[in-house]
């Protein structure tokens, strides 16, 4: 009984995946491309950078990068705070 239930759930999930795959849009044609086109057309004059990815990461969404940098800062200060006592000056 449990095996039949598991098989049924598995088949339903596979069918769901197939339906999702069939209803995908063709490659390279996203439904909402306005923002992408804006970045690609205006990055060189607004952010003054050839690398559009960098201009998105550091300019248009710089706040996100600030959060990432804060995560790394917190991780490093946590490790150093916990282990400084052991690695310290004494030989």
């Amino acid at each position: 009984m449990r095996k039949a239930l598991g098989l049924f759930a598995f088949l339903a999930f596979v069918l769901f995946l197939f339906a999702a795959t069939i209803s995908l849009r063709p490659f390279g044609e996203p439904p909402h491309a306005e923002m992408d086109s804006y970045f690609i057309e205006h990055a060189q004059e607004e952010a003054s950078a050839n690398n559009v990815v960098t201009s998105v990461v550091f300019d248009y969404r710089g706040f996100d990068t600030l959060g990432e940098a804060t995560v790394l800062f917190t991780a490093v200060s946590g490790v150093l705070m916990a282990l400084r006592h052991y690695g310290g000056k004494e030989k």
Binding site: S48, A49, T54, F58, D59, G62, A69, F73, V76
Partner: peptide, 19 residues
Amino acid sequence: TGGTLSYLNIFVGTKVLAG
């Protein structure tokens, strides 16, 4: 070129390498 992008790259690079 790049404006603040270059400065932010340099600062983030300093931070990551030191950490």
